[in-house]
Design a protein around this nucleic acid. Structure first.
Lengths: 305, 305
DNA sequence: TTAATAGTGTCTCTTAGACAGTATGTT
DNA sequence: AACATACTGTCTAAGAGACACTATTAA
């Protein structure tokens, strides 16, 4: 039926007809999801009796099948035709890692034409945070050969600014290094940020890839950036702490995410209204015990003012 | 070929085989884009000689075909198999409205199973801002019967908080009203925000729809929220001002977006480093002339510190 | 002179950052 | 007593918010 004849039908008739003859007229992409799930874990090395150090980790899966067989990738997979993206990403995470019902927020949709060698795949990525203490032991499932937490280290290896009239261009190389015991994978991106007047555009190219599948180096770095941005003005970091926690521990979580030391007084003032004293104390290491706090549920009201 | 046999192939062979036999094994959704493009325009009514008022507007297209024939929708359309989402949204905007190369950022990907009656469509929405002065006259094209700028008015009509232990639930009804001359369309959503500990989840239902197609009431309200959030800590609003502008005009742009009056001194301090005095003056209305400013391209450096 | 808008000086209050101190526990 | 960590008091600098003032133009 011609397009103009189709339009003469009632809406119900149109939709029936559309499903029969129009629906699959054009080639469609597949939709997939990717979950960048982070945790802050205590380092296993308790060699000396200094303050127990924490580190930021991301969950990766060893690919059991092509493409990128043997490489490490974020959890994720195809969205089914009867589920939404949010459902798909939680389902895949559970299938592949056993991790269930975590805090997750939609981050970005990746749609570069050549991002998957098999076919056109558009991927919706999520950022998730989880308190590792609450997790069941990880178990690989499905296509995944192995599942592991990787320590995250990122660093800017090169940075150059250029200004021509109203246009400022910043070129950066950023290296991502992920370590899990003897397994070390890495990737490097080149990020070019062009600011033309008030308008900023960013282009990213993956220039090195060692054991990280697809464009996941870029996705992980982008997730990190967003995570760091949100830590300062939201309660997002509390998803990484247990029910009860000490302020020194909470501060370490912030420090590990932001990858810098924070001033103690200022930090305590900053989180003051987000926490409630439980009245309890805990002896963490040796020496003076810390007070135990809980998250303050009433804090949301302050945000809504 | 069985899945396990496929995996025995080399990666190149696997991909060849995959493209032949696996690629279309499962039903796929379509991918579309939606562009929420805003401008701040001077009201046409210059009845008295009071300060010329501005208003926030969004661009909508009257649907010439089913579904939602005759209703108003955001610009957008299907992504082609050989383009990425960003390209698609700019192309559709141009085809449907004649608007070309505007500042746009990806906002959110909408994937509710029933969001389109024809078939499964996942839509990636963008937020764009444009200085209306720079635009060519609008021209409807393609499926679009008509293209217009609508004045945006949103308001919370109902709000209720409830707290049970650590769980705070906020229920809001938000009405969106869009006016363009004699055309008035509107929609209402119910937004339920559940904060459980540090973890917030939001669910939105469209409870009324008068002339706004699809789930675009929700998308427009979400875009507005993001726009308001970003105005305070980015230079995003400068995309709505011309090359040269006065501070009173710029302040009005901020006020119209935020839908509240701002303190003059505080506003000027806030934008102080983002602008440069051109040395020129302009007589806007009657009375004392304003200084003309430009955007300060060097401001990005302050952000990168 | 008055009306209307443009622009500045300065006070206060809040928040961010830094330093020096006290407190409490183990060795 | 020495040490390592927990926690607090207080100084200073920067930013947000509000008020009162001066400046410039046309009618």
């Amino acid at each position: 039926m011609e397009e103009k004849d189709l339009q003469k039908l009632s809406e119900t008739e149109f939709i029936d007809q559309y499903k029969k003859t129009e629906k699959d007229k054009y080639e469609k992409p597949s939709i997939a999801t990717d979950m960048a799930i982070f945790t802050v874990a205590t380092k296993k090395v308790t060699d000396n009796r200094k303050k127990a150090d924490k580190e930021l980790q991301v969950l990766l899966i060893r690919r059991g099948g092509h493409p990128y067989k043997g490489d490490w990738a974020l959890a994720g997979g195809f969205m089914g035709i009867d589920e939404d993206v949010e459902t798909a990403v939680q389902r895949e995470l559970k299938e592949e890692t056993g991790v269930d019902g975590v805090y997750a927020e939609q981050l970005y949709t990746w749609s570069a034409v050549d991002r998957d060698p098999r076919m056109r795949i558009v991927s919706v990525s999520y950022l998730a945070l989880v308190d590792q203490e609450k997790l069941p032991p990880l178990q690989a499932g499905d296509d995944a050969e192995d599942v592991r937490w990787f320590t995250v280290k990122d660093r800017v290896t090169e940075s150059r600014d250029e200004r021509v009239d109203g246009t400022v261009t910043r070129t950066e190389k950023i290296e991502l290094k992920l370590v899990s015991g003897e397994v070390i994978v890495s990737g490097t991106i080149e990020k070019i940020t062009v600011t033309e007047g008030a308008n900023t555009r960013t282009a990213v190219t993956i220039i090195e890839r060692n054991g990280i599948a697809f464009d996941h180096t870029e996705i992980i770095l982008y997730s990190l950036e967003r995570l760091r941005g949100k830590v300062n003005y939201t309660n997002i970091a509390f998803n990484l702490a247990g029910e009860e926690f000490t302020l020194p521990d909470l501060q370490q979580i912030y420090e590990v995410i932001l990858d810098k030391e924070l001033n103690k007084v200022q930090f305590r003032r900053h989180v003051e209204n987000m926490v409630v004293d439980t009245g309890k104390e805990i002896k963490t290491g040796a020496y003076r015990p810390s007070k135990l706090y809980r998250y303050n549920a009433a804090w949301v009201y302050e945000q809504w003012k």
